[in-house]
């Protein structure tokens, strides 16, 4: 792993300055210099924060629509696209690899929808098939590439578990641009999204073609997955989509508060995890995901109103069980 780290560091656009510090010439210079961090650390922190922010903001599109595993299969689907993009171009150009990831994630989404609709499979079966097949395909292709002896290929395996060491300022700029797209889409479509997710029947009768909302939210989900796959890795990306939502859901009862809250949780976990993983020389994905999961668990237990402890205190847990018992009795009768 350390060979990959040094390899990708050298491949980055960083240069040693006259005093051994890092200098840069990118468009975000001012922003990155303002942070009390070294330049490479600042790039990683801002980059992973943006990745986490986008995942947290768009995660509700998966979680609230009960499509978390759909998002998981899409992120597993990115691997094959990364490998194919590398095979075609013969070089590790991040933008092209991400384009490959986007194409194959979209293909995975189409495959699941097709299996569900035309093949008349249940959603979980369709997801299971696509998830395992696309991961297998990705691993076979990546293994083939790494055994081909192509010197260029080192570091492709970072798409499996995520890596921040190779992150350069250009990646941060791309991430910020995509984050802008995500924020704009959510602001513009908020009412439609809330309505169509909460009550698709009412929304359709009101004249909305709900497949358009479905397609748009799947597209946005693909955006989050593709943006995060290099940092967090194809295998763990789903956790960064889900954990911030779980944490935020305990703290609010309104979607308008849930989305920014979840985005902030994602950003903080991303930044902290990115920094920690670099220091501990661990892959970024597991560290970020463990942090986000810890925050989610804390929130589930400790949240003031909806948390396990708060509900146990207010007796609502007990009441809920009694109500369920009564319902069961009524049904039995």
């Amino acid at each position: 792993m350390s060979a990959i780290v040094t390899g990708t560091l050298q491949a980055g656009s960083l240069q040693a300055g006259p005093l051994g510090g890092w200098v840069q010439a990118g468009p975000l210079g001012g922003l990155l210099d303002a942070l009390p961090l070294s330049y490479p650390d600042a790039v990683v922190v801002v980059g992973t924060a943006v990745v986490g922010f986008v995942a947290g903001l768009l995660g509700p599109l998966a979680v609230l629509r009960q499509r978390s595993m759909f998002g998981d299969a899409m992120s597993h689907g990115t691997l094959a696209g990364v490998a194919v993009a590398f095979l075609i171009t013969g070089a590790k150009v991040p933008e092209l690899l991400l384009l490959g990831a986007a194409v194959s994630a979209t293909l995975a989404a189409f495959a699941m929808i097709a299996l569900e609709r035309v093949g008349r499979l249940h959603a979980d079966a369709a997801i299971g098939v696509v998830l395992s097949v696309s991961l297998t395909l990705g691993i076979v292709l990546l293994t083939g590439i790494s055994e081909s002896g192509n010197a260029q290929q080192s570091g492709l395996d970072e798409y499996l578990l995520g890596q921040t060491a190779g992150m350069v300022e250009r990646d941060v700029v791309v991430a910020l641009a995509l984050a802008g797209v995500a924020v704009a889409a959510i602001l513009l479509g908020f009412r439609l999204l809330r309505s169509a997710t909460f009550d698709p029947g009412f929304t359709a009768v009101a004249g909305v073609r709900t497949w358009v909302v479905d397609a748009a939210s799947t597209g946005l989900l693909a955006l989050a997955v593709v943006l995060g796959v290099r940092t967090v890795g194809a295998i763990l990306m789903v956790a960064l989509l889900v954990a911030p939502v779980v944490a935020a859901r305990q703290l609010t009862t309104r979607l308008a508060a849930l989305l920014p809250l979840s985005a902030v949780v994602g950003a903080v976990c991303g930044a902290a995890g990115g920094l920690l993983s670099g220091r501990a020389e661990l892959p970024a994905g597991p560290v970020i995901v463990l942090l986000a999961t810890a925050v989610a668990v804390l929130s589930v237990v400790l949240a003031p109103r909806r948390g396990v402890i708060a509900r146990a205190r207010s007796g609502r847990l007990r009441q809920g069980r009694m109500r369920q018992g009564r319902l069961r009795q009524e049904r039995a009768r």
Partner: peptide
Amino acid sequence: YVPQSDAVAKDFPIT
């Protein structure tokens, strides 16, 4: 239109 109660996302964050 008032749909059947199970056609609505019950745990959705909405007031």
